[in-house]
Design a protein around this nucleic acid. Structure first.
Length: 218
DNA sequence: TAACTGATGGGCT
DNA sequence: GCCCATCAGTTAG
């Protein structure tokens, strides 16, 4: 039987946010409620680099009840609303250093039929965007905002992880490209994965961009 | 299949 | 007011 190991505070400590954003690719985002566990492989992330990043909520030291989670310690969940959607961030630096990673897309892997049912869509539309994946998981409130990921129904499973064959670094989505940080390559994707938020169908890879299982054994 | 556009809630100056 | 860390429906090719 395979066992599970979940990302703890150490995973989000002691290395640059850009590195953590890439390390999350191929891990499994889990939502474990008392009645069931659902989840998917993380295939797209974005790094937000705090007070000097013009696209970050904490740019220039901005701090409010809204952005407060970013200033808490590593592994803090930052769940916020953008229009009608809930988005998921994980804080990646020590308290008072407001950096984080936005989870932008997952490939359904745990109870995929439940994700489809929650979302009311099928195929890549289930989870190929940051608001869509939260709908698919069934998270439609901010109850877990500010929780430490070590004590939450959300978790990152690091065991039996898949390894991207190629990681691309691209400009972030929805960020004003004319701003100072607007074109930085802080968006990381598993090249060729169909669940990426803006991939063209012609660019889908048959193996979804993962290394063969044998190569993935660490 | 891809590009475009309108709806939309809320934080911030 | 203004600006989005978005999404879905519609149109053109």
């Amino acid at each position: 039987m395979s066992h599970s190991s979940f990302a703890n505070t150490d995973f989000f400590t002691g290395r640059p946010t850009t590195e953590i954003a890439q390390a999350l690719l191929g891990t499994t985002l889990l939502y474990r409620t008392p009645t069931m566990t659902v989840g998917g492989l993380i295939v797209e992330t974005e790094a937000y680099l705090g007070t000097n990043d013009t696209a970050a909520h904490a740019y220039n030291g901005r701090r409010s009840a809204f952005s407060e989670p970013l200033y808490r310690g590593p592994g803090t969940l930052y769940i916020y609303r953008l229009r009608a959607n809930y988005l998921l961030d994980i804080v990646t630096q020590p308290a008072e250093t407001p950096e984080g990673v936005l989870i932008r897309a997952i490939e359904p892997s745990i109870q995929p039929e439940q994700l489809v049912a929650n979302r009311g869509k099928s195929g890549v539309l289930v989870s190929n965007g940051p608001g869509k994946l939260m709908q698919a998981l069934g998270i439609q409130d901010q109850a877990m905002n500010l929780q430490p990921i070590t004590d939450s129904e959300l978790a990152i499973d690091l065991s039996h992880r898949k390894v991207p064959r190629e990681i691309l670094a691209l400009p972030r989505v929805g960020v004003n490209p004319t701003a100072a940080s607007g074109q930085l390559p802080l968006r990381f994707v598993v090249a060729g994965n169909p669940y990426l938020s803006d991939i063209k169908k012609r660019d889908w890879q048959p193996d979804h961009g993962w290394q063969a299982a044998n190569d993935a054994l660490n």
